[in-house]
Lab assay of single mutants.
Amino acid sequence: GLMCLEHEDEKVNMYCVTDDQLICALCKLVGRHRDHQVAALSE
């Protein structure tokens, strides 16, 4: 899978609806997407 741009060791596994961007779990937990609307990726 694709790796996160901000956290190079994390794979992107969710999608930020607010930013129209693929993000990883760390982005959602501690990153700038924590208050955004996110959706899980169905692979």
Rank of each mutant, 00 (worst) to 15 (best):
D9S: 10
V12E: 07
T18R: 08
L2A: 15
C27N: 02
A40Q: 12
L41N: 09
A39Q: 11
L5K: 13
Y15Q: 15
G1W: 01
V38L: 09
H36E: 02
A39W: 03
D20M: 08
V30L: 09
L41Q: 13
N13R: 07
L41G: 11
V30Q: 14
T18D: 07
L5W: 02
C16D: 09
N13F: 15
Y15L: 10
L41A: 12
K11D: 05
C4A: 01
D9H: 08
A25G: 13
V38A: 09
E43P: 08
V17C: 14
D9N: 15
M3Y: 05
V30R: 09
D20V: 04
I23P: 14
N13P: 02
C24P: 00
L26C: 13
L5S: 10
E10L: 05
V12I: 12
M3E: 04
L5I: 03
E6K: 06
D35M: 04
H7S: 00
R34V: 08
V17D: 13
H36C: 09
R34L: 03
L2I: 14
Q21E: 09
V30D: 13
C4W: 03
E6G: 03
I23S: 03
D19H: 02
L29N: 12
D35H: 06
E6N: 05
C4H: 05
L22Q: 15
C16I: 07
L29R: 14
L22S: 15
A40E: 10
A39L: 05
A39N: 15
M14P: 03
E10W: 05
G31W: 00
Y15M: 08
S42E: 13
D35S: 06
R32M: 05
Q37I: 02
A25E: 10
E6Q: 09
S42T: 12
D9W: 09
R34K: 15
E6H: 12
L29C: 11
R32T: 12
N13L: 05
V17N: 15
H7A: 01
G1D: 15
V17E: 13
G1C: 03
T18N: 09
V12S: 03
H36I: 02
G1R: 08
T18K: 10
Y15W: 08
K28T: 12
L29V: 10
D35F: 05
V30N: 13
M14G: 11
D19V: 00
D20C: 04
S42I: 02
R32A: 11
K11P: 05
G31A: 05
A25C: 08
I23M: 10
L29D: 14
C24Y: 03
K11Y: 06
I23K: 04
M14E: 14
H33F: 02
M14D: 12
E43D: 05
E6D: 07
D20Y: 02
E8S: 15
R34Y: 02
M14T: 15
T18G: 08
L2M: 15
S42D: 14
E43R: 09
H7C: 02
C24E: 00
L2G: 15
Y15H: 13
I23D: 07
L41E: 14
R32Y: 03
A25Q: 12
C4Q: 04
Q21C: 06
A40M: 07
L41Y: 02
V30K: 14
R34F: 02
K28Y: 06
C27W: 00
H33E: 01
G31I: 00
Q21G: 07
G31T: 04
H7N: 01
Q37P: 10
E43G: 09
A39K: 11
R34C: 11
Q21V: 11
D19N: 08
